[in-house]
């Protein structure tokens, strides 16, 4: 069993109004060093697989079919960690 973390982000060419609003809010708070904000999603999956590679593959498949929309989002399988048997 693997704990797999997927990261889904808006494509660089897509404007991120939510990130922009957060950026403005941070500036209003005086945190003017922040030069840009992009908001994405982190999705954690628990996957029954024989190997780390198989777990990563299953996670990629989940991202391609449902978790990310290729029109506006990119995804990355960040990590896959084997879970201790209970």
């Amino acid at each position: 069993m693997y704990h797999v973390v997927c990261r889904i982000t808006l494509r660089p060419s897509i404007l991120d109004p939510q990130g922009k609003a957060i950026h403005h809010a941070l500036h209003d708070l005086g945190q003017t060093a922040v030069q840009g904000v992009r908001v994405g999603k982190r999705i954690e999956l628990t996957i029954d697989a024989e190997s780390e590679e198989a777990a990563r593959e299953a996670a990629s498949r989940a991202c391609e079919t449902l978790l990310a929309n290729a029109v506006m989002e990119d995804f990355e399988v960040e990590s896959a960690t084997e879970l201790e048997a209970a």
Binding site: I14, L15, P17, Q18, A21, N69, V71, M72
Partner: peptide, 8 residues
């Protein structure tokens, strides 16, 4: 695709 409104 339909994204969040620009005004949020």
């Amino acid at each position: 695709a339909l994204m969040r409104n620009a005004s949020l």
